[in-house]
Nucleic acid binder design. Structure first.
Lengths: 252, 252
DNA sequence: CTAATAGTGTCTCTGAGACACTATTGT
DNA sequence: ACAATAGTGTCTCAGAGACACTATTAG
């Protein structure tokens, strides 16, 4: 069947085609208490009632895909205005296996979100239970539909993006210390990093961070000098990149 | 609106939701005569009649997304069997701006394909004109819908993927010389590479290529020794990566 | 022979990482 | 005083790139 022929038919009767629903799902990550957390929602209805699932929902008629993802995220977190604007949202991938939802054909455009530590905003506009769950606890839980795969893809993408983009700053407040930035990398990558080398490296990458001139009010909780404060720079890509350690055994 | 509520409604009447069509589009790249080419189709119908567009079409009811992309690619190129299997197809991104198609809401899952130099297989199952167009000539042509953006995204993804994956080999026959491999990189990146350094670098990356033991029958068309033949190795990722030169002015 | 290409040797410079060290703070 | 942390100095090693060079082939 040709594109033109299909387009022709479609123009005449959209419902002539098998119904396909388009949804967005969001893999929303944040860092709380030094651990990577994922926003999950407990399903109240069948199928998969009682299981945890990603927040998401149907794309509205005149809504862009990323806009739909941001709206769903706002509904589940209670975020709005500037705090919502500070959340980074990007497209992750699309999932459209014919049997991924037992009820009908649903193609989901998954999105990836990086948020700073948020108030416990668990209340959405609905009665669903929405919770930030430590990623480390996910290995035990079974997620609804193919959301386990989506989360795995999202985590891998997040880890990769920290290497060559400055998105780690999106997990932090507008002003942060190099130590806080390092904690983000250590949390997302699950590796300890060398403080001294990390410090020098971050400052050497053009446009990654820029100094505010100010320092923290106090030193660390257990002592130490007051750290200088930085904000995100204007770089979109880090060059050279911060490569993850222990890549010895890459996929063969 | 909650996920559960939506799911509930959807289960009862799929057509209760505004019709959204899901299509796949394919950015298919190959190298012919030392230049990067893109598979395009000339539209015969409105809208955008006469303009060039990406091959693609509607996803069928029980068809996976990548399967749909492969099917459309097969139809437009006439490929089948082993040659088709050798084409690399991966998901690129989804495009769903509400007004991207003037007729109705269409969400397209774009795919990226790397093919070896193919016979002029222009004949699809339909009367559309399908041609491999040099990418260099695209700057002049206007493409239908948002296909110009999709192509730009696909090209950038292709260039990036050559850095950290062995996918460059997918542009070549099963057995190839290091010089041919270098030509792929030079063509896709649009940069001359140093022959000697490239040679040593490729052989030093574990699992990138493996020797067949054989050599070419003849030297180059203008002289030179016969080159050794290699096939793709078992690596999925190149480590260390082959970084593009001239990344001085990255996006700020 | 001449020109072109395959493949290797070698040097330099950048950057990553290991390690050591000083300075500054909280307890 | 002591422990923890910020930030800097220095050394080593891997890898990218520039350049030179030899060997082999087509015309």
């Amino acid at each position: 069947m040709s594109v033109n022929e299909q387009d022709f038919l479609a123009a005449y009767d959209p419902h002539a085609y098998p119904a396909v629903a388009v949804t967005v799902d969001i893999v929303a990550l944040t860092i709380r208490d030094g651990a990577l957390h994922l926003l999950l929602i407990r399903r109240g209805e069948q199928p998969h009632a009682g299981l945890w699932a990603l927040p998401g929902g149907f794309v509205r008629p005149d809504e862009d895909l990323v806009a739909a993802a941001r709206r769903e995220l706002a509904e589940e977190t209670g975020l709005d205005g500037e705090p919502l604007r500070r959340v980074h949202v990007e497209q992750l991938a699309s999932y459209g296996a014919p049997d991924r939802d037992p009820r009908m054909r649903i193609v989901s455009i998954a999105h990836l979100a990086f948020a700073p530590d948020l108030p416990d905003a668990t209340a959405g506009t609905d009665a669903d239970e929405a919770v930030w769950v430590p990623v480390a606890e996910l290995t035990n839980r079974q997620l609804a539909f193919d959301h386990g795969q989506i989360v795995a893809d999202g985590l891998e993408r997040a880890r990769a993006k920290l290497e060559y983009t400055p998105l780690a700053t999106r997990f932090l407040a507008p002003e942060f210390t190099i130590g806080e930035l390092r904690a983000v990398y250590e949390t997302v990558w699950g590796h300890q990093l060398h403080a001294g080398n990390f410090h020098r490296k971050v400052l050497s990458v053009p446009g990654f961070v820029e100094s505010t001139g100010a320092s923290t009010e106090r030193g660390g909780t257990r002592g130490g000098p007051r750290a200088r404060l930085y904000r995100a720079g204007d770089a979109r890509l880090l060059h050279p990149a911060l490569l993850r350690p222990a890549r010895e055994e890459t996929v063969r």
